[in-house]
Amino acid sequence: MKKFLKILFFASLLLNANYANSAENSAKLLKGDWSFKSFFGKFDRASLQRGYQVYNEVCASCHSVKYLSYRNLMEKGGPEFTEEEAKAIASNFEVTDGPNSTGEMFTRPARLSDKFVMPYANDEEAKSANGGAYPPDMSVLVKARKGGADYIYSLLLGYEDPPVDIELDDGVYYNKFMYGNKIKMSAPLSDDIVEYSDGTKATTEQMSKDVVTFLMWAAEPHLEQRHKFGFRVIIYLVIISILVYFSMKKIWSRIESKV
């Protein structure tokens, strides 16, 4: 047993080494109060819907979420807009389709089966429109950053005036949570930049929380199902382990020996 603990100790050292070694960034991330974190964690439906609104009205002008489809907005475990609402959202966007019978491409309103319309036609256009900085696709952004939801949340709230010893070029902003503290995105959120229809006050914190919740769902759309399954699987495994344990005792009792 002692040996086992020893091994566990070293193993945990190893894990820590692997996954917490961001030496460059000393600022401690803000911890959001996430409803999806715990063992039974679920998304806050209202927050997801507000988060979509923030994404749509603020982020979407530069950032794509190319792996989401409009149908996802009505799927279980997501924002769960009604089918009509999701259709109405989709129809606000124009997608290029075709070619038609005369061989020409045409635009039509988006349908549920369409992927989210991207703000730029390609990466190069995205870069040139943003002073050379590529606004990353946000489909799996939460999973693509160390610190996950907390990191994005911190970043959104991490804009400050730069310390006196730091010179910033034009179009570069100071953010205490960004790698190297310099970021080419200006602070995207400010109080009341969107107007929530459910009466929630649109503070910067609230919007950050909502949009990060939305992005977490975008990156991990089956999170709720995963948590639900996980609970069932583990309960099942514990029960069957106990059954097998007693079966084993029974079988081994046929010979005189400890297991």
Binding site: H227, V233, L237, I240, M248
Partner: peptide, 29 residues
């Protein structure tokens, strides 16, 4: 039966990773 019992304990650990920290052993990048 003994191997099976050990396997089930192993699976509990496995399940924790799969269902509750599926990306902890990978890299965000």
């Amino acid at each position: 039966i003994k191997d099976l019992f050990a396997l089930l304990l192993f699976l509990i650990v496995f399940a924790f990773f799969v269902f509750y920290s599926p990306n902890i052993l990978g890299h965000a990048d």
